[in-house]
Design a protein around this nucleic acid. Structure first.
Lengths: 208, 208, 208, 208
DNA sequence: CATGAATGAGCGTTCATTCAT
DNA sequence: CATGAATGAACGCTCATTCAT
């Protein structure tokens, strides 16, 4: 999935991978604190432990750092969702576990998800589209699991909106903290959202 | 509610109000297009129709513009929610109308809401807290309406999570467009989310 | 003739003219010493007596300075040639005076002409073409005068090559100094070149 | 003639010669396209087929490349002129052939001569003087031939200025292309300049 | 001898902010 | 009150040069 900013003046491929990971980690640390625009390339280099010149041996423009960061976080989240939903004939208990695991995963990655949301406008169109596509695929995986795990017949539209809601409510836990994390622990939040979901799934669709 | 960046070298209070509104409108126009960081103070002044010198008679720093914009959008959204939920003994149909009106309102203000989400990290702590507080109050108003309108007994936690979900799912319509607006019209989205809510509300809480 | 880099963020037109002249004079001083590439924008600003920020209120890019310098020198030289050759029915003595005046003028502008020759490759295509055109026009004016002043019939090709030679031999005095200024004073150089020209002009063209 | 930047960390003399020639050819190729300042040392090394580290085994500074190039072109042009003018008792026809051959030679080396003219300011004083000296010697050889070949008595000053004119008019063909190569082919240019020269040489010097 | 990753001084350029008019 | 010319710190980025391997 990840191919990224391919061009680098450095020939040693494993070194490129290593250095770019250092760049990504440093950038995430700084972007969490001050965002992309308030972080300077010199700060990224310093945090990564090398000089500004070295930084530019591994990227072409500052925006490339943002792209690397996006691809990294995006990949990370995507891989997790793919692993969670890869089971062939999921039952309701599987779905419950998936949601639990997904929400706890996002809880760990709160700041990274915040970055995804806040700097997307600064991204190049191509990368933006790629990020969007990855998100759509995650929702799709969730939707398939929901339909398979549901004890009752369910329209594809209904499953779709449920998948979207679960997906974004995960993100919401991270980036609307002040709204939620004062009143709930992650356990409570998961319990509440799961309960709501189950009510919906088990409710006979004909009754409305 | 709005008092903000009180310091201005200008004495005429109505003039200050007028000029600041011009600044806010110009800034929103520009922030929608290029975001806060890519918009220059010169551009804001030009868009507002006066000189850079004049701009600085009504603000102290560029960040003040962001604060003015935040307070304005925040006020706007808050006022709408307050109006929607001010009815004394709401029934279920009132709640349905409120959600409908709220989602359509957010649909109109998509770009403004995007600004709220994207530049919040750049804000001063005090202002940030104020923005958070306003959001909490909106959720609170929604929660009260849900509890009052619900045909069955409902725990305060259940109403709270429902209110939060509705609130953020409104925002989500705007800032996760690529995920939703390809597959749904605003009418369909409202219909789906309302249906889900009603299933939940009408479902007997004891059955789980 | 001169219109140049028209765009400036400064509104006061006479101030723009004044500042740009200061930029041109400073740049010429520095380009004489170290050439365009070795001169920094900060040096140009400092030499002109203002800050780097102010410099960039009057130009958009460093290359604009080179363009301004080119247009200025070019204009200057062109105007001189135009004035020299504007007489209606020149006789041989007029031509001799023109050459004398032209060579002395170039002698004064030695360093400026050197700049014209040495940085032309760095110029934008449009400006380059304009410079070339101005040179062609100067040669044309010289050619017309030669034909009019010649005591004998002369083909247009002959006059053309003579005009070209005079024109470039003027420049040559300036930028091939080491070749000439060790052996000749400007007076001697003019005398020699004039003598050669007269020999050619007076020689009956049929005899070859 | 060529000894140049003697300092190299490499001991094998023939290897040094080989590598430096590769450097010179690569540099000339690149300087023709983008000039000295816009060409990077990395590009020179790459074009020459070795690494940047290796390049710096054979030069000390980037300017050394310019020196090598200058010496090479200069040598080349000098050798040609020396060969052309080595005949012992030249007659007028020899002179005509020399000029023809010289102009055609310069025509082939147009871009190289342009380099000579455009970057001379960047050169170290010692090298500059050497280049100048080489040029003076070329003019001198031409001058001797003119005097020997002339059918009439000629003052040394007259021969000197003629030699200078021929020499620079050759260069002029190359670096003032736009002025000449629109209107003349190289054949026509040579014919015209030769005709002018012959008129001058054959004209009885006493008649003025 | 050859390599190429690392360095950092220094470049061109921007733009928030000031202040004399 | 309004103006806009002036400022300079600070940014993103380049590239000649070095040196460990």
């Amino acid at each position: 999935m990840q191919e990224s900013t391919s061009n680098s003046s450095i020939k040693d491929v494993t070194l490129v991978k290593k250095r770019r990971n250092e760049i990504i980690q440093s950038a995430i640390t700084l972007f969490k604190q001050k965002g992309f625009h308030r972080t300077t390339t010199r700060e990224i280099a310093k945090e990564a432990g090398f000089s500004i010149g070295t930084l530019y041996e591994y990227i072409r423009k500052k925006e490339d750092v943002l792209i690397l960061v996006y691809e990294s976080i995006n990949d990370h989240v995507y891989q997790h969702m793919a692993t969670l939903t890869k089971k062939d004939d999921p039952i309701l208990d599987d779905l419950i576990l998936i949601i639990d695991s997904y929400y706890r995963f996002i809880d760990d990655l709160q700041d990274e998800v915040l970055i995804l949301y806040q700097e997307i406008k600064s991204l190049d169109k191509t990368v933006k589209r790629k990020v969007f596509q990855t998100e759509r695929e995650q929702v799709l995986m969730l939707k398939r699991t929901i339909m398979a795990a549901s004890p009752r017949e369910m329209t594809t539209e209904e499953a779709d909106i449920l998948a979207n809601n679960i997906f974004v409510q995960g993100h919401m836990w991270g980036f609307r903290r002040w709204l939620l994390q004062k009143d709930y622990t992650i356990d409570q939040y998961i319990a509440m959202q799961t309960k709501l979901l189950l009510q919906t799934i088990q409710y006979s669709a004909t009754e409305i």
